[in-house]
Design a protein around this nucleic acid. Sequence first.
DNA 1: ATCAATAATTAGAATAGTTCTTGATATTGG
DNA 2: CCAATATCAAGAACTATTCTAATTATTGAT
Lengths: 142, 142
Amino acid sequence: MVSHTPDNSAEIEIPDEISGLRMTRQRQEVYRILQLERNHPTANDVFMRVKDRLPHISLATVYNCLEALVQHGIIRQVNFDRESSRYCPNLNEHGHFHDAATGVIHDVDFKPGINLADVLNLPPGAVIDDIEITLRGKLTTP
Amino acid sequence: MVSHTPDNSAEIEIPDEISGLRMTRQRQEVYRILQLERNHPTANDVFMRVKDRLPHISLATVYNCLEALVQHGIIRQVNFDRESSRYCPNLNEHGHFHDAATGVIHDVDFKPGINLADVLNLPPGAVIDDIEITLRGKLTTP
DNA sequence: ATCAATAATTAGAATAGTTCTTGATATTGG
DNA sequence: CCAATATCAAGAACTATTCTAATTATTGAT
């Protein structure tokens, strides 16, 4: 059924402004790709995908848009080692599991009621602004 | 007192081989810097420091040595965002706290008896090979 | 609506960290 | 001692990203 419905996913509505950021056409399209493409694309992935709708967009603009979106807390930038940055519209605090076999990156949520200070020996007086958890491993499907 | 004692810290003994890796002169010196310089230096930091004892060493060799040491599990490579890689001789499983004010990176140990699966909703069948935890924040000294 | 001021976009050049290439040098095992 | 192998050095090459400068779009005031 689902596979027979025409792809109107492109018709996601994006407002003219999100948390103080003017959503220009380019920013809208970049953001929309991220909403559709949930597999943590790189700037270049987004670039190639967004060209379908904005053939004249430049890679620099994609970088600019992504940075603006990150800056305004609309998306998150995710780094694995020194690979290309990836981008993610999931704003819930979460980590990432990197499946070595497939390269697929899965979001990993925290269990409710977990406090980092319960788990880690933080330096005294440390105030945490940002947490980044990356797991690497294999997904054994038993 | 300490400041008056001559710096014989350079006399750390490093064996000819560590976990199957032949410890050449260059690798020894690179490794020794990491043991002394516990502040997570970059390849370039190591390069500048190691030149005191090996004036002819090249940056490429420092990279080669660091890679060999990482590959053999003798040191760890640590990445923050897309900054230069940093290197760390602490092999205990640990995370890093990045003090935004000073730029200093502190090792953060896990509290004993903590199981990641208790804290995170891992994808079913996930087998973890490697964990990376990076915290960013400020160190308020009360 | 018009126009100036500001912001965004584009294309390509520049940058920085790292890796690669090639030839020289050192080390090991036979 | 010699051949095979590993390591090192110097600089070129590579890649992701940022910067620059010129163009285009948008906004707000008149």
